[in-house]
Amino acid sequence: MGFATSVLLGLAGLFALAWVLRAGARSILTGQSRSIANDIPLTAAFGLLVIAIYAAVAIAAPALAPFPEREIVGGQFQAWSAEHLLGTDRIGRDMLSRLIYGARNTVGIAFATTALAFVVGSILGLWAALTGGWLDQVLSRFVDALMSIPALIFSLLLLTIFGTSVLTLILVIAAVDATRVFRLARAVAQGIVVMDYIEAAKLRGEGAWFLIRREILPNAMAPLVAEFGLRFCFVFLTISSLSFLGLGIKPPTADWGSMVRDNATLITFGDVTPLLPAGCIALLTVAVNFVVDWQLHRASGLKES
């Protein structure tokens, strides 16, 4: 089990590096940042480190990747070697390069999708909660109707109608996700809009946009951030499931969700190739949520550990 051992060693190495960096930060930084560095749990430091590495890889992909994203440079499914560190894929493209470019494409698409879903979903949700009345009713019932249609099947319908370019993919997944965000944002905001300070601001004559931006949003941030962490990672899974049903990202763009799908049959024979993109997704999911948990913990003000 050389593969399992090296994965465990890699993870341990990342933890060790995170610990060293945190220790370094504690000794170098001063003031506010120092107190954050003191407070940060090791898991969150690990999460931040992983996110930083992903971001760096995504930005520097062309410099890091040994081969171009789409070029066929070898035979089908070549073994790991000095030339192709992680072997080649189904049509002979370098696996490592595809993974590196995949970071850029996948994370970019997932981020764009989630951000869009959150902007649309939370603004509408907060607005509905703030305004109430028929607007709230219409929006909520409509969102209820959309949510009661299975997400995957609804996406399938929409993508078949509108085509499968990257842009429509982002828009469709964001639209489906936005319904979930709307519901959460509305639920959270309903608890806030009855507060005295909202009443006071309303009496001051502030507009809806101001209220949402300056009064409600800051107080609704924590649960929204937590949701963001999970939704962000679910985008990869949605893309992967869509490619399971024959839709998804267009070739030759490298993306982890489709790469898992493309190589999935190999797992039947215990081959680790499909584990690589799946592992990339899993590591990022865990890392993001470690950081989110830490932020939630800070926001909750619960001081005990």
């Binding site: 078949t160 024959g246 839709l247 267009k250 070739p251």
Partner: peptide, 9 residues
């Protein structure tokens, strides 16, 4: 340019 279209239809 490769345009991947849905299987469906």
């Amino acid at each position: 340019e490769v345009n991947r279209v849905p299987n469906d239809g």
